[in-house]
Amino acid sequence: MYPLWFLLPGAAIFIVLFIVPTFASFYYAFTRWTLFDVEFIGFDNFVTFFTDPQLSKGFTNTLIFGALTAGLKVVLGLLIGVLLTSEIWARGYLRAVVFFPVLVSTVGVGITFQALLDPFDGVINQTLAVFGIDGPGWLTDPNLALYSIIGVDVWRGVGLAALIYMAGLVAIPQEYYEAAKVDGASGWHRFWNITLPLVRPATTTVVILSLIGGLREFQLIWVMTGGGPGFASDVLASVIYKQYAYGFFGLSTAGNVVLFVVVSAIILPLFWWLNRKQTEL
């Protein structure tokens, strides 16, 4: 029992700051509350959440954002990882360049790309104008805003995915590749039959981390567009923040519960499925 006493301070902080607020939010999601008053209203907050166009749009955008960012990070992270573990010139420098965006503040990345993607004075559109291309409103066009932020998020996070893949790739015994070469396997067959199956643990890690981060993303979206134009780039986290700012505390608490349930409903079965596939190898 002696070592367990050292867990008590951390456990107390975890219970007070996470467990208690989590369970309390499930109750307050069914109420209309302020700091001084609580009124139980049943499922009204959830009905409003799923019938209000702004809120339902945020729910849809959250799923799109999580799926696309996770998928792109897996594909690009694996390709970059394979490239940076091969015998190429300036490999160490390229690894540092790829990983550098991970170290930069999310707010800093958002402000930087907000300037770069400016439709009039941004470097990207000015560069396109040199080649006679009329650049679009990356962050002002409702059809492009969300996807522009997705591209920035992938740029910011693909370095971590590549690092995880590199750790998995260097752990693969080279004897497998040498034996495959002797048998006449092409580069594609070696990649498909050796590399992909043996980096499955890394793939599981990248998928889970990227999905959790994508479904909960708030800072980058809020800095770059504030959920706009209109509600075009709103996600659940930004909608919840706006409802708190408007004083609809019960509705925003219901949004937090919905976000918690959505993330859990996606991540837990996916984690179980990916790990089951891994054990079958």
Rank of each mutant, 00 (worst) to 15 (best):
L63E: 00
G58E: 00
V82M: 08
F18V: 15
I41D: 08
V47I: 15
S86A: 11
W33C: 07
F36Q: 10
D52C: 06
E87W: 11
S56E: 10
T48H: 13
F50S: 00
V82G: 03
L83Y: 02
S86R: 02
I64S: 03
G42A: 04
S25M: 02
F26P: 05
L83W: 05
P21Q: 03
S56D: 05
F65M: 01
F30G: 13
F49C: 09
N61D: 06
P21V: 03
W33A: 08
T62G: 07
A29S: 12
T51G: 01
A29H: 12
Q54N: 09
F46P: 01
A29F: 14
I41Q: 09
T69F: 04
A67C: 10
F36L: 09
G58V: 00
D37G: 07
F59Y: 05
E39I: 10
F65D: 02
A24C: 04
F46T: 00
A67L: 14
F23T: 08
T85P: 01
S25G: 05
G81F: 08
N61R: 02
S86F: 01
K73T: 02
F43W: 11
L76C: 11
I41T: 10
E87D: 09
T62R: 12
T60N: 06
T60L: 13
D44T: 06
F23M: 06
S25P: 06
F50T: 00
L68N: 02
L76F: 11
F49L: 15
G42H: 03
A70E: 05
T85R: 03
T60F: 14
E39Q: 11
L35W: 12
S56F: 15
L63H: 02
G77M: 12
E39V: 11
V38S: 06
L72Y: 04
F30L: 14
V82T: 10
L79Y: 06
V20K: 01
G71E: 10
L78C: 05
V82Y: 04
T22G: 09
F49R: 01
L79S: 05
V20F: 12
F50I: 00
D52S: 11
W33N: 07
S25R: 00
D37L: 07
W33D: 06
L76S: 11
K57M: 08
T48D: 11
F65I: 01
F36M: 03
F36N: 13
F65H: 00
V16S: 13
I19F: 14
A67Y: 04
V38A: 06
F30P: 05
L84V: 01
P53C: 08
T22D: 06
G81H: 05
F36Y: 10
A24D: 14
